[in-house]
Amino acid sequence: MNIFRLAGDMTHLMSVLVLLLKIHTIKSCAGKSYPCSLCFILLESSSGISLKTQELYALVFATRYLDIFTDFISVYNTIMKLIFLGSSFSIVWYIRRHKIVRRSYDKDQDTFRHFFLVLPCLLLALIINEKFTFKEVLWTFSLYLEAVAILPQLILLQRTRNIDNLTGQYVFLLGAYRALYILNWIYRYFTEPHYVHWITWISGLVQTLLYADFFYYYFSSLKNNVKLKLPA
């Protein structure tokens, strides 16, 4: 474990916590009297969260952590896997099933057909992988899928008029975690002999590059102290 990977995991954990906080805010809002301005904004405008991206991430974790009960790495590793699995599936459940949270989900805007991402990633994993075994192919599939899983969310943000802070933070943290992982891979390449994982590195690089324009607008909105807005 190195500082870059730990920072990356913590950033990833933060992104999940921000999303759970946002869902909690929406839930708690419904109980209050209506005139509360925050509630009004939350319930009237869409939450800006893409269910499609959340479903893709649940699939990413399900296919990446198949070895959670067979290969024990460390307590930290197992706990983090359980957190990511539990949170991603519960977020999907909240947006799909929870009587209040589902109201803030705008399915008319979140129209990205994520099936078009799943199939090519699966085919690519069958062709390009380190070992042609069930677990290895699914693990490789999870890397390719994670690289593109943010696309429905980024497209939804372009369509969302006013991106609220928690959603912007969520996407930023999600992009930042993989950028930190790239530093981790560079560090491990120079410190551990034979540490070469091209598939992981290229997928992670593509994933981070997909956030490039978001990062640009995110930092610009911070610098100019204006609302985050992505050009359509």
């Binding site: 990833h12 070895d67 790495i73 896997k81 990511f84 992981t200």
Partner: peptide
Amino acid sequence: SATTDVKDEL
């Protein structure tokens, strides 16, 4: 020798 590279990253 290809060590059975255990996936130690999340």
